[in-house]
């Protein structure tokens, strides 16, 4: 289910980029927060704020089981010279075709080789990996450094 919602987020962010909207909201979950943080670190988005369905919070609001359904993450989209910085955001692993890779495969993939049906990483492209047995999401290069196995979640460029 988490991968399905991630697919929705990917499609939504692509649409928002194409529409040149300044802000995008995505559901508030651990996976999405991890992905959004990764995007911010890599410079694909300009800001990351917590908020509700009505917009970003002005004052911090505690997340409780009563208000979790209305909580959202608000991402500030980036554009340069009228073109979106985030132009493509796609899933690699899918609910009916999971893509797991061991440390060696990840290393080979990171060095520009094709892995199974997954096309090689392009310059400036970021791949998010979920290490096996962990809830965090890391960059492909971090995964190679840590020498961990993991699931290839999505790619951004």
């Amino acid at each position: 289910m988490s991968i399905v919602s991630l697919a929705n987020v990917c499609a939504h962010l692509q649409n928002v980029s194409m529409a040149r909207a300044p802000l995008a909201s995505i559901p508030y979950t651990r996976l999405h927060l991890n992905i959004a943080l990764g995007l911010h670190k890599e410079g694909f988005i300009s800001s990351l704020q917590r908020g509700s369905q009505n917009g970003p919070d002005i004052t911090p609001v505690e997340v409780t089981p009563d208000n979790i359904s209305t909580r959202r993450l608000w991402l500030g989209m980036k554009y340069r010279q009228g073109k979106p910085v985030l132009s493509k955001f796609q899933l690699i692993s899918k609910p009916n075709r999971r893509v797991y890779a061991n440390a060696e495969d990840l290393q080979s993939f990171a060095s520009g080789n094709r892995f199974r049906f997954v096309k090689p990483v392009m310059p400036g492209e970021i791949v998010f990996v979920r290490p096996r047995g962990s809830k965090e999401v890391i960059n492909l290069h971090e995964a190679v450094k840590k020498h961990v196995d993991g699931e290839l979640l999505c790619r951004v460029f």
Binding site: Y28, L33, H40, L48, R50, P60, T64, P65
Partner: peptide, 16 residues
């Protein structure tokens, strides 16, 4: 000021 990383440390939703 809370950092975004600090949100990931504990539980995402405060239990009742």
């Amino acid at each position: 000021a809370p950092t975004v990383e600090s949100y990931l440390e504990g539980p995402l939703v405060r239990p009742r």
